[in-house]
């Protein structure tokens, strides 16, 4: 039996200190710590994210009621914002089916916060401020801010908004990615994702924080489409040492557009042969009521800890990774 922890006492102490620093930072910035349910009757509809499911049996659920473990606390946090919470943050475990590897554990710790009145650029500034505080011992250089387009032009030599599938495929081949099994020629965003994760990302954030912003509108997720440039969504990510650390949005507040995206994702799920998942009607109702204009971001706490402790695998910073859970 592998009853012993995978990590060291030193890393456990580092995690505790990191969490205390995060709480201190938000207390000083007057952002309220909140908790939202881990179990939800609605699920994430994103075809690229799979939900864990469980069943509640008890009062009002004699036949058993299917519930989903949240993949992110985003929807209920937005319901709090719509109800007038003001700026809020949360540190919680989130759950993603099927994800395990060097940088993935099916349950992991997420820090998520929302800033009413912030643009995605203002929020990137705050993410930089907090990350520098948490990784003070790393001696990071001046941060880099690149648009998604600039990053592709610099590292892949093409314009991600104009390039067609053939150009993306030949670019992948030039970078040694031949015969990628299972990728269909016409899945443009999958090819962009392949180039991003295999060619560009490993070179981002070398001894500094690199923010990539303004993702293609087709990868908007829950971000607002830029009002002056319909090609891009107001979404950003943060990378350090080639590791994806954060993902943020100028949040979509339009209920009709949100519903359209949910339905589109469900359609894609059906097309892929994935199980249908119930969309969050409560979120749609909250957006209809009125979500304040805001920006929000999710940060992977375990990966922060990996970088701050020099660990090469996420399992080194978890007390009991999935193999010992």
């Amino acid at each position: 039996m592998n009853w012993q922890p995978k990590t060291t006492l030193q890393v456990l102490q580092l995690r505790a200190a990191l969490l205390a620093q995060i709480r201190g930072f938000f207390a000083a910035h007057h952002v309220l710590e909140v908790e939202t349910p881990i179990l939800s009757s609605a699920a994430n509809t994103d075809p690229q994210v799979e939900n864990f499911t469980t069943t509640f049996a008890g009062p009002d659920a004699a036949q058993g009621r299917q519930l989903y473990l949240h993949t992110s606390p985003e929807f209920p946090m937005k319901r709090l914002l719509a109800a007038g919470s003001g700026p809020v943050y949360q540190i919680c475990k989130v759950f993603r089916q099927g994800e395990a590897g060097r940088y993935h554990n099916p349950e992991f710790t997420m820090l998520e916060w929302y800033r009413p009145g912030f643009s995605h650029h203002q929020l990137m500034d705050e993410v930089e401020q907090l990350t520098r505080l948490l990784l003070a011992q790393l001696d990071l250089g001046k941060s880099e801010y690149l648009s998604y387009q600039q990053a592709f032009e610099q590292y892949a030599g093409l314009d991600p908004h104009q390039a067609n599938c053939e150009q993306l495929i030949s670019c992948a081949e030039q970078h040694g990615l031949k015969g990628v099994t299972g990728l269909a020629k016409q899945d443009r965003d999958d090819w962009l994702n392949l180039l991003m994760s295999h060619v560009i990302q490993p070179r981002l954030g070398q001894q500094r924080l690199t923010f990539i912003f303004d993702y293609p509108a087709s990868q908007a997720a829950l971000a607002r489409i830029c009002p002056t440039n319909p090609l891009v969504a107001e979404r950003f990510e943060l990378f350090l040492q080639g590791v994806e650390l954060a993902n943020g949005f100028r949040e979509l507040t339009d209920a009709a557009e949100q519903q359209r995206r949910f339905l589109e994702e469900l359609q894609q799920r059906a097309h892929n042969g994935q199980t249908a998942t119930p969309m969050d009607e409560n979120l749609l109702a909250a957006l209809n009521y009125g979500l304040p204009d805001c920006a929000g971001v999710a940060v992977g706490v375990d990966r922060l800890l990996m970088l701050s402790s020099g660990a090469s695998e996420i399992s080194e910073v978890l007390s009991f990774p999935i193999g010992r859970a």
Binding site: V49, E99, V180, N193, M196, H198, Q201, Q219
Partner: peptide
């Protein structure tokens, strides 16, 4: 065998 997956986007095995 490395599992590569962006938070939002397709998962790959490299």
């Amino acid at each position: 065998n490395e599992f590569v997956k962006p938070g939002k986007g397709q998962a790959f095995n490299r």
